[in-house]
Design a protein around this nucleic acid. Structure first.
Lengths: 212, 212
DNA sequence: GCACCTATGTGAACGGTGTCAAGATAATCT
DNA sequence: AGATTATCTTGACACCGTTCACATAGGTGC
């Protein structure tokens, strides 16, 4: 019944428990999904009593947010890398979308945790909009692909649209119904790419302006 | 501390407890969100002991699925109505999208419950694909809007894309960051319509075929 | 070195949860 | 009517989030 780590005799004070708790939480998330992520389980996994986390996080919710924050930062860096690797501006947007969906596929429980927090507060996390953020990468990719910088409203609408589409695909791409099509297209990534390109904003950037 | 209903002296046997439990569950969902939806709370709300639900649902999960099923049926009928009301085939698709997002906005907790179940099983619910389903409505709307019936693969990709986009918008349209834009566009529904139209598949049905 | 303060850990406890087994009660079938 | 079956209740179990009082360790001023 030993915990998976931290079995070396730990000193009474841990040293960096908040960090250890976040890592333990992510480990549990990967192994057992969001349902397995109880505060007590995290404490157990970190080799610490159930009350210890309360000296570092006021809430279970606050720990979840710390875990989610890590996820957002990693998602941002995946987006940045995908954009940097693109051969041209038009490809960048699709690359970002594919990277986004792949991140969600590779870290499903983490991704759910990230968005659950966002939905509960009805807010994008800070890291998605400010500074070096995924949001900004999408916006800039749209501009480089030919969006009119003078039409701020259209640009914001397009950014929202792209983000929403990627999120939708991210949450649904794993559904079993799509397996035949996935196989027909030669795997998961081509499938995701094809869906994203059908969504439109990723492929049809240069269509005539929307009326309005 | 009285329960909200069922205070008339109920006979020992309820009569139609499973139905009452589903209704109680929906009431709790509306008032307190998904977090408030415990099996015991549902039993309390229905005026029944905590173990009673187990004679009708093997699990908490099974009750949630029953609640979600109701949600899917109502969503389907909202989609059907929206499609029927559209002046022409092209408008039908956008109308469906708007109806979808509005349903999610008006029943946020129910919508979350519906999709949580789907995500856990990595499957669309039966009612979304078979028979008179939202899925089929989208597919038919795409065909009527000019999709090539011979290109089955493209049609399925487009259906997936439209559904994913609507889902993404549904989950994010309530975010606070978008309020300024919402106001600028004259309210929630115009905002949703604009985002959906920017997503592309809803407006750019007639663009040239995708390569591949 | 020593007393003290603060940060960080432990243990036990509270009410809440999902679930189950055993028993009570009512409807139904013969 | 008696027996069977479906339904509901009571009571228990382990787990959960959270809080409290207390124990321990690291650091600071003397």
């Amino acid at each position: 019944m030993a915990s998976l780590q931290a079995q070396e005799i730990r000193p009474y004070h841990h040293g960096d428990l908040s960090r250890a708790l976040i890592q333990a939480g992510r480990r549990i998330l990967e192994m057992g999904g969001p349902a397995a992520l109880s505060l007590r389980a995290v404490a157990r996994e970190a080799g610490v009593s159930p009350a210890a986390p309360y000296h570092h996080f006021k809430d279970k919710c606050e720990l979840l947010e710390a875990i989610a924050k890590e996820g957002w930062m990693e998602l941002t860096s995946a987006i940045a890398k995908a954009r940097a690797r693109a051969p041209d501006a038009r490809a960048a947007l699709t690359n970002i979308g594919v990277a986004y969906v792949c991140f969600a596929r590779d870290n499903p429980a983490l991704y759910r945790t990230m968005y659950d927090g966002a939905c509960d507060r009805a807010t994008m996390p800070d890291h998605a909009k400010k500074g070096d953020s995924g949001w900004r990468h999408v916006r800039e990719a749209l501009l480089e692909a030919g969006a009119d910088p003078a039409e701020e409203r259209d640009l914001e609408l397009a950014t929202i649209a792209a983000w929403c589409a990627a999120h939708g695909v991210a949450e649904m791409a794993g559904f079993k119904e799509f397996e035949p099509l996935k196989n027909a297209l030669g795997g998961e990534e081509p499938f995701v790419r094809a869906v994203l390109e059908h969504v439109g904003i990723f492929a049809a950037m240069s269509r005539p302006k929307t009326p309005g």
